[in-house]
Design a protein around this nucleic acid. Structure first.
Length: 480
RNA sequence: GCUGAGGUGGCAGAAUGGUUAAUGCGUCGGACUGCAGAUCCGAUUCCUGGGGGUUCGAUUCCCUCCCUCAGCUCCA
């Protein structure tokens, strides 16, 4: 098992990663409230932890990764009410769309998506523990967490409850003992979905589902909790307070991993600002790998500023050269078959390739530095340029060796994988007929006609390139 | 105001108490092309927010100031 160091937000230090029960790793990532479609900020979190889980698994850890779905919540009820839809089926719809986008993004690591409403008995049981333990109190059919009873409340975020800006957005609900207390169980309001509880009909508060789920599925303590930085307070603070008070065990989480937020031209994305860029649109326009590359090309804890019309375009340019090299390599190996004889790599080249793979693992072992790994991939392709330029002379074995770093990238980062060219959508014979016409035009020196044909093909998304005496074509955006 | 994360070349973005501070994009040359693209070769050697301090040596450690973003009970 590889030695990994990880930054933990709670202790504010980078420490050796030691799972509670190696090689198993329990991992929980705050999921979604499916009241709207995923945006590119959600994609960043998803890709970060997808790649992180892939890396751990590559290193021999047995990762159990779950992501919750808050399918009952104020926003769902509000959105449902506005559109005349049942909140639960609204949640199902959006969750289905979310899953489609995540599949397209290449998210493969999540083992399960537990839904809040499937854990109501666990939620009620945990609230009861908190009430019995004196950490929570009932009022007007609701139950609140008494923040003052949990001494470490605020430790994760460095907040002191008494220092919170008074009155800001703290609802001065009747029944609350202190403004900072948060709701565990919300008394029923007519027309909303409700469940029975010892305190009367109602529904779960926002924070409680996570700990009900994790205690049940991962145990009272687990290894990794991930989410966007914006959830640190109050949500994660509440999770700690709930779980640790309910189970009596501490710490709830070994490593808190908070992902730097993605901003839009320097500002937070939000519906009220009207600057939300949908993940679906990004995938449509740039394809999954460019989007993944964009996220992974920065450290996960750094904030990332998204500028429409620039950020993903730059990512496409940068990623294109890596993708191009891996495509050529994979295509050549496919053409060569497994047993082609040919030039062998020098021992230096073999060693460099092996060392590159080692560098990739090392980069991710030090606080999951994907940017460093990508830099190593670029360096290696740069160094190997002369070899990569004469692939048709190499043996199959040499080609396989050279594929090593790209196979690593495919497995862990979800980049530079199998050839995704969707050539079935064009008819090769038709393209070839055009190319033949162009070749005849070039032969007789009619370059305006040759260029007209090339431009027409380009307009259809088919890029024509002359390599020495050979003309090749490919679909534009072969990274898709 | 309080809490947290940041400030690195034209841009994006790593790293480190010590050889020329990665890598990529862009730009500029060259090779190859009818031209272009792709690819290859080379250049872009005076970039670490300001000011102090510790040190033989600071971008890194300490203090201080300035600026940006986020959180302060909807948020990934």
């Amino acid at each position: 098992m590889r030695r990994i160091r990880l930054y933990d937000t709670l202790s504010r230090e980078t420490r050796l990663f030691q799972p509670l029960v190696p090689p198993r790793v329990g991992m929980f990532v705050c999921g979604l409230t499916p009241y709207a479609d995923a945006h590119i900020g959600h994609g960043k979190v998803a890709v970060t932890f997808d790649a992180f889980a892939r890396a751990l698994r590559r290193w021999g850890y047995r990762v159990f990764y779950i992501q919750n779905v808050t399918n009952i919540d104020d926003r769902l009820i509000a959105t449902g009410g506005a559109t005349g839809k049942d909140p639960l089926s609204l949640a199902d719809q959006h969750f289905a769309a979310w899953r489609n986008d995540m599949d397209r993004l290449g998210i493969r690591s999540v083992n399960d998506y537990p839904h809040a409403t499937d854990f109501v008995p666990e939620i009620v049981a945990q609230i009861r523990q908190l009430v019995d333990g004196g950490y929570a109190y009932a009022a007007n059919g609701s139950v609140y967490y008494d923040v003052a009873k949990f001494a470490r409340y605020g430790e994760l975020s460095g907040q002191k409850t008494e220092a919170l800006r008074p009155g800001a957005r703290v609802e001065p609900e009747p029944g609350k003992r202190a403004p900072g207390d948060f709701v565990l169980w919300k008394a029923a309001t007519p027309g909303e979905p409700t469940w029975d509880s010892p305190w009367g009909p109602g529904r779960p508060g926002w924070h409680i589902e996570d700990t009900a789920i994790t205690v049940r599925m991962l145990g009272p303590r687990y290894d990794v909790h991930g989410a966007g930085l914006d959830l640190k307070f109050p949500h994660h603070e509440a999770e700690i307070a709930q779980a640790e008070a309910a189970t009596g065990e501490s710490p709830l989480v070994n490593f808190w991993m908070h992902v730097g937020l993605l901003t839009m031209k320097g500002e937070k994305m939000s519906k009220s600002l009207g600057n939300v860029y949908g993940l679906h649109e990004a995938l449509e326009e740039f394809g999954p790998e460019v989007v993944r590359f964009y996220y992974l090309n920065a450290h996960y804890r750094s904030p990332l500023d998204f500028v429409p019309g620039i950020s993903l375009e730059e990512a496409r340019e940068a990623y294109g050269s890596l993708r191009g090299a891996s495509d050529r390599l994979r295509a050549e190996l496919l053409a060569a078959g497994p047993d082609r004889a040919g030039e062998e790599l020098s021992s230096t080249e073999v060693a460099e390739t092996g060392r590159t793979i080692e560098k990739l693992d090392e980069a991710l072992s030090e606080d999951f530095n994907t940017r460093e790994a990508i830099a190593a991939l670029f360096s290696w392709t740069g160094q190997s340029a002369s070899v990569l330029a004469k692939l048709e002379q190499l043996s199959s074995e040499s080609l396989s060796t050279l594929l090593g770093p790209f196979d690593w990238a495919a497995a862990v980062l979800g980049l530079c994988g199998g050839i995704p060219l969707d050539e079935s959508s064009v008819v090769p014979e038709v393209v070839q007929a055009s190319l033949d016409a162009r070749a005849r035009a070039r032969d007789r020196g009619d370059f305006p006609e040759a260029d007209r044909i090339r431009d027409a093909l380009a307009a259809a998304g088919i890029v024509v390139e002359d390599h020495g005496g050979v003309t090749r074509w490919r679909l534009r955006g072969s990274e898709r």
